[in-house]
Design a protein around this nucleic acid. Structure first.
Lengths: 210, 210
DNA sequence: TCGTTTCCTGACCGTATGGTCAAGGGAAAG
DNA sequence: CTTTCCCTTGACCATACGGTCAGGAAACGA
């Protein structure tokens, strides 16, 4: 009954394929939504037979769940830059930088997260209620400490966090709109830098941190 | 061959039903996405036989297109408050107010717009390239004028507009997340007012308008 | 080499979906 | 009243989808 240990080679191949499938799935789910995505599309993108997907992931929901969980962990991990900061300029500035980088490097993940939340978070509701709520409470307390120390104006920390999320994720979630308004061309390095700086400056000035 | 004029009574009934269908469709499309929505769900919500939907809207795409176009026009119309303003405090302040109101009153429309843009705007790409681009260019020029008049700090007007869109629409698109982090309860009147004020204050201070 | 476990996949199945249609109901026009 | 046209709808169809499975290939351990 005990699960037999897999050989290293087997394990490696398994992990490679799982990763390949997850990458293809992230893209397809982000582009089409859960309902619009099909296992066949994901299989084609990963260049695998559809049945092979079902060998690694029992159902479409399972696959979707794994993709969303992956994204969530990347985000949580990237948010650690805010801790250990001496004040809002350093902490919030670094957080904005990190989130803008993610928006640029992983737009599909950001879109998928937006898609999931927009539809009532059917899959990751428990994460919202536990991990994300704890994280938010902790950072809100940190911001409140900065306020008490006179390092920034008194604001509602939750709403400030929403502003950070909204402004940074916008460049991923609405990237197509931004690109269209940019003459159909993706933002250049310079434009990304400008966007990042303007978001940071505006918010940090807005909360009286600079 | 000419379209025969319809009687007033017929026209009225027709319009009522079309509106009913559009409302049901907006909700279902927003909740499930285009792929996840089904004509049967929309029909059930509108309390009509499915075949009746196809009498008024030939295909699912047609219905979706009409819904998205409706939303777009509401948005454009609401944006007029920005014109005729004497400066950024009045103009941008009123625009934020208007957009926050829309986020609260029409979250489904906002979500559907987000959904459409996130998926590459397959239906309203031409609107983005014409109407929205023109609108954006005009408001960017307005903001630039305010900058030239020394009424606010020099910022990139486009990125400022993105910040306005992002922060206000966040309360609709990510309303479920906001609600979950609010203890599972929707924002109260007081909290909405607080959110609106904080967004306005932070941005207007951030751009040096106050 | 041989038996065992893991992995792979073409063919298949039940279901649900978008869309069609023909027949009927009912208001307006004559 | 009769005719015409718009509207309504239950029944139906073809397709595409998620998921299954049996049988074979490949890798592993002894």
């Amino acid at each position: 009954m005990a699960q037999q240990a897999r050989s290293p080679r087997r394990l490696e191949i398994r992990q490679q394929k799982v990763t390949l499938i997850l990458q293809a799935a992230e893209k397809v789910f982000a582009e089409a939504g859960f309902g619009g995505a099909t296992m066949q599309l994901i299989a084609d993108l990963a260049d695998l037979p559809k049945a092979n997907l079902h060998y690694y992931f029992a159902t479409k929901e399972d696959l979707y769940r794994r993709v969303v969980q992956n994204i969530f962990e990347i985000w949580l991990h990237a948010a650690e830059v805010m801790d250990n900061a001496l004040g809002p300029v350093e902490g919030i500035g670094a957080y904005i930088d990190a989130k803008m980088e993610i928006s640029r490097a992983h737009p599909d993940g950001s879109k998928l997260w937006a898609y999931e939340v927009m539809h009532g978070a059917p899959v990751i509701q428990d994460y919202l209620e536990t991990t994300l709520r704890d994280w938010t409470t902790g950072r809100a307390a940190l911001i409140q400490r900065w306020i008490d120390q006179g390092k920034m104006r008194p604001v509602n920390p939750e709403h400030l966090l929403y502003m950070l999320w909204a402004t940074t994720q916008h460049y991923a979630d609405f990237g197509h709109q931004v690109e269209t308004l940019n003459g159909g061309k993706p933002l250049s390095d310079r434009q990304w830098r400008e966007a990042k700086e303007q978001v940071k400056t505006t918010i940090l000035r807005g909360i009286g941190a600079i």
